[in-house]
Structures are given as structure tokens and as C-alpha cells.
Design a protein around this nucleic acid. Structure first.
Lengths: 342, 342
DNA sequence: GTGAAAGCGCTAACAA
DNA sequence: TTGTTAGCGCTTTCAC
């Protein structure tokens, strides 16, 4: 193997060709005023010298880094990993890089992430607010500095920031309606913490769907858990121990649904014949369960793409328009075995 | 809300205090030669002006970006998400940021990722080689430029690059041994692309485990696939169509195992009674399958942490020592329902 | 203990 | 069509 490459700069290229760095820079950037022959020579020399543009120098000069900072609660949650995928896709198409910061659902980390991004001179921040966060000063600072900020999924409407969210109400409505259409009469709901907006929306969608279909809402069929497999299991056991068993369950999300399914299997209940079940989120594992889990797909990749596009659109206009945009994505029912009675 | 903050620089702080930018810089960096009083004044003014250091300028000057570039095949694969988590943890502790690039298992993307990182002047690259990659020129270039490169999981030993890997051989050996101990006699293996080192190691571990236990290796029981659910399904069908059916399967990783399980269920085969199965990787879904999937856990977070530490260690020495280090993590058997005969 | 000055690599007015 | 020059914000050597 040969020696270490000494990094070439535009100066080196210029020297080789007896022209100036300015011309080299223009040639590399396809400036219209540069002669074709010069461009060709410059580009060939660049290849020969193994030249790699120094983005840092360019960023400093141009005042833009071509980096998007993304703050997510956790990459372990499939949902966010998938959203990031969408963001990266659009970012790469636009020659942008993506820096990721995980808040681990902690306010302090989230704040640190924001400051890191500010120092790194990111051109935009896309964020999903941590569950623990109440004080939004750090986000306000991003806005004050005129750096585009866009929320996805976990948004806040009071800050005048555009966002992309899923219509949880509609998703829950559709899921419940689906169970009704399968002939279910006693549809239970395992809900989440009601102070979390999305969980509350899902409860409302459930209730309204029942009302619309003339099914009376039975409070005994609604139990609240902590949104986990274990909690789903416990909630289901509670539902099973009551005198009037449900014939279907709408779970607030897939992990809860999974726990519920485990409890049903333990109790010898046939899914969906005895009790049908549907979840929410379309976590990866649902497809592989037996029976496979019906759920509501939130189009995570599209959410990421949309958030990123919102930023690139804002580049061509005002980063903070008087009326921030709020894009609401419609979720989609995924009907698998766990809810199919026919 | 007040006006947009006009970004303060060290010049602004200097002007406020009638000192020079040099002094401000030194004060902010806790230079020992600076008077305490000056430091205090500078820092207070920095806070007052809402000063945020411009990392880009600092990077250009110092020739280091404090960014680690990480190349992974896909963030959707739980394994890699988890490794990245470990990397980020250690990186953050050392005031480094992490840029992530997904190769999507494609050589072209991977190459593009490398170039992006080179342009971004990352201080190190941690990478897991894509399955499709055969030509390693792009990685060689990183090395030539003297930028630390460390492989994790999917490593290559011919490049003189340090790496952190799991002892795939040992994991495969243990998995196979486990099946033997369950009383299985005709243990099949669904392998991956053999040019990928880890897949080859797993094959070897399988073969040696059989040999050690005096079971003759039957080539008809070894099929090679493309490491995906679909491929696992097809390979299993092939195994089932042969006259001498296996009584156990060691799959090269969990997605392959999942496909195989689906094929078995379709064929009415009972798992593990008729055919036991074990995977590799401990993907999240395995725990929730019916039956739950036995597998080999690779300690992903530790792998990420170790890879990152390897880089920070190299900062205090030679980035490319004559004898690159190869850290081998011991995997751990996770015995669930799919392989338990007793 | 602090200032003056140079420069990291690139780009963009302005000039020619 | 290309050269000259200045400067992005920061750090550091060399002075004093």
C-alpha cells in the first residue's frame, strides 16, 4: 500500500494548472462563466489528486452547513427509526446530511441536543418532543435564531412551529369501525395515559365510532394501562375476569395488544374467533405474530419525508410563516388475521 | 416574542469588554494564562449575549470536526440501531457527534456515504460492511487519508483495520450444540452469502459442533440463502421437499429463521416437536413469536460502545497500528420455545 | 496576562 | 473568461 494521501485542496489543483483557486472553485461548481476546457482540466486534476471538497470550509464561508439535526426520543422505538429513514431519504436527495440526537425521553438530554445542534450550525431542526418535556425554552431559542424548526408526531401548537402529525382520532375511529363491521358487539378498549394527547385522541375515536354505530359505550369495557406488554397483559386479564366479556379489543398500541394477546392465549381464548383484537402503530413484530396482528399504520417513512420536505419548502419562503403549517397524515388500517372474523 | 437573535461571535464579546477576540477565545477555553476576573467577565458576557460557539469555524481552524461517521446497512434492523445507541453514548461522553449513513446494503450507497463523510471531515468512521460490498477501495481511501476507521460486526481483516466483532463461530457452535443436546440428529443449516465473513464463520461453527458430537455433516442439510424472510421461507421449503427431512434447523439469523418458521407452519409442521429451530441476532420480534424463537444474543450496545472506545483509544496512539486490534465479543445463547424439546 | 497577526479552505464581489 | 482580494469565526504563535 502506498503512502498516506496528503489531502489536496483547490490551491493544489490551481497550482498544477497555473490558474487561481477562485477559478478552480468556480469550475468545480460549474459556474457558467468558466470555459469548458478549463472545467474539464480542473475536474480531471481533481480526480487525479484525489481531491475531496472540504465541506467545513465551504460551510463556514457560505454560512450554511447542509446538515439537518433530528431529535428523537429513542432510536430503539421502531416508529422513530422509520421516521428518520424518511428524513434521511429526502435529505440525501437534497445533498443534506442528518445528525441524530436521542433524548431518551429526558428533558435535559433534549436541551443538550438542541445546544449541540446550534453549535454545529445545523440548517434546520426536526424534532419529536420527549414525554418528559414541559419547558419549551430550548425550542424557542431555535426559533429566535431563525433556524427552521419542525415538529413531527409529538408536536406543540403554542410555539408557532409547523408540524407533521398523524390523525390518531381518525385511526382509532377506523380501527373500531372495522371491529364493528366484523360483527363485534362488545368492543373493549385498552387505553394509555390520558394526559398524553395521542392516547386521548385514540380513546375519543373509539367512543365516537361506537356512538356512530349505535353501540352504547360501556365503561366496564374501558381499562387504562401504562402502554407496555406487561400492562396490556394485566388489562386484558382484568377484562377477562369481568362477568361480561368483550368479543373484541381495540388496544392503544401494538405492545399493549401483544400483551393482551398473550393473556388471551394463556386463558385458552381463540383469536379472533372468541375475541378479535387490533392494535395501533404497526410495529414490525405484529406481522409475524400468530395470529398476525391487525393494526393502524402511521406511515412513518412518509411522516419523515413530509417533515423534511416541509423544511426544504421553507427554504424557498419564510422559515416561520405567520400561520405555521400543520400537516395531518391519515393513518391506514392494516387488517390482518387477529381481527378477521370472516 | 422579541426579535430574532443576531448571532453573537467572540468578536462581539471582545468589543463589549474592550479586549481582543484572542483573549475571549482563551477565556472560553479556560486557558491557564488568563486572569480569573477576565474569564468570569467573558463568560458572563457570553451568557448575556446568548453566545453559541461556532463549531464549524473551530473545526476548520483545528482541522477536526468532532464528528464520528457511522455507516450501517440499515437502521430498520434492530441490531444496528442498538449498536448505534452504544456508539452515541460513548461519543456524547467525549463531546463528539455522530453522523449516520445507511447503505441499505448497497455498495453504491456505501461508497457515497464514505465520500460524504470525507467531505464532512469526520474524525473517524465506524462501519459495518454491506452485504453487497466486495470492492473495498472506498474503505482503503479512508485509511490512506489517515482517518481512523473501525469495523464492527461485518468486518474485513485484509485491510489492516481494527474491528469489533462477535464470535460468530462460537455462537454458531453453541447454537448447534444446543440442538444436539435437545436430542436432534438431523440438524440442517440455512446459511447466508459465504463471502460475508460472519456467515461463513457461522457455517464453520455449525460444522465443527456436529463433528465434535460425532454427527456426520450431511451436505443435503445445508442450503444457502440471501438472508431475508423470503429467502428463509424458500430455503426451508427446499429442505422440506427433500426425502430426508431435518429434525432441527440452525438459521443464519433471525429473519431467515422467521421465514423458515412460516414455511413450517404452512406445511403443518409442529415447532419444536417435529422440527426445532434456532436463529441468530436476537432481533426484537423473536421473543413474541409463537413459539418464541431461540437465538444467539450479540450484545449490541456493548459492541457499539467498544467500537467507539477503540477510536478514542486510538486518539492517544496510532490510528493504524502495525497490528490492528480485533476485539471479539462472546455471544450468549437465548433458549426459548422454538428449540426446547423437553 | 493580553494583543497583533496569520491562516484553516473555500467563495464571491469587484476588477480586468 | 479569469484574477485579486477579502473574509466567514475561530485558534495559536509570537510579541510585548
Amino acid at each position: 500500500m502506498s503512502d498516506t494521501i496528503s489531502k489536496a485542496t483547490i490551491q493544489d489543483i490551481a497550482r498544477e494548472l497555473n490558474i487561481t483557486a477562485a477559478t478552480v472553485s468556480r469550475a468545480l461548481n460549474n459556474h457558467p462563466a468558466i470555459k469548458e476546457a478549463t472545467k474539464k482540466a480542473v475536474k480531471e486534476t481533481a480526480v487525479r489528486l484525489n481531491y475531496r471538497p472540504n465541506k467545513i470550509a465551504s460551510s463556514l464561508r457560505l454560512g450554511k452547513s447542509n446538515i439537518i439535526g433530528v431529535i428523537i426520543p429513542s432510536a430503539e422505538i421502531n416508529f422513530f427509526g422509520s421516521v428518520v429513514h424518511g428524513i434521511e431519504k429526502v435529505a440525501n436527495e437534497n445533498n443534506y446530511n442528518v445528525l441524530i440526537y436521542q433524548s431518551n425521553e429526558l428533558y435535559e438530554y433534549e436541551k443538550k441536543g438542541v445546544h449541540t445542534f446550534l453549535q454545529s450550525q445545523v440548517d434546520a431542526v426536526l424534532a419529536s418532543i420527549s414525554k418528559e418535556t414541559i419547558n419549551l425554552e430550548h425550542y424557542a431559542e431555535i426559533k429566535k435564531r431563525g433556524i427552521p424548526l419542525i415538529f413531527f408526531d409529538r408536536a406543540n401548537d403554542n410555539l408557532g412551529v409547523s408540524s407533521v402529525v398523524v390523525d390518531d382520532y381518525a385511526g382509532a375511529f377506523e380501527a373500531t369501525k372495522h371491529l364493528v363491521q366484523q360483527g363485534c358487539k362488545r368492543i373493549a378498549h385498552i387505553g394509555g395515559q390520558q394526559h398524553v394527547g395521542i392516547f386521548n385522541q385514540r380513546l375519543k375515536g373509539y367512543i365516537d365510532a361506537l356512538n356512530v354505530h349505535n353501540i352504547t359505550v360501556d365503561d366496564d369495557l374501558i381499562v387504562y394501562g401504562k402502554v407496555s406488554i406487561e400492562s396490556g397483559r394485566e388489562c386484558m386479564q382484568k377484562l377477562l375476569s369481568s362477568p361480561k366479556k368483550p368479543d373484541a379489543v381495540f388496544a392503544v398500541e401494538d405492545f399493549t395488544a401483544l400483551g393482551a394477546m398473550q393473556a388471551m392465549k394463556d386463558a385458552g381464548i381463540k383469536i379472533p374467533a372468541d375475541i378479535a383484537i387490533i392494535g395501533f402503530c404497526n410495529e414490525a413484530f405484529g406481522e409475524y405474530l400468530t395470529p398476525s396482528l391487525s393494526t393502524v399504520n402511521q406511515k412513518t417513512v412518509i411522516m419523515g419525508e413530509t417533515a423534511a420536505r416541509l423544511f426544504f419548502d421553507s427554504l424557498r419562503g419564510d422559515a416561520y410563516p405567520a400561520h405555521p403549517r400543520k400537516l395531518i397524515l391519515q393513518p391506514e388500517l392494516i387488517c390482518r388475521e387477529s381481527s378477521r372474523k370472516y
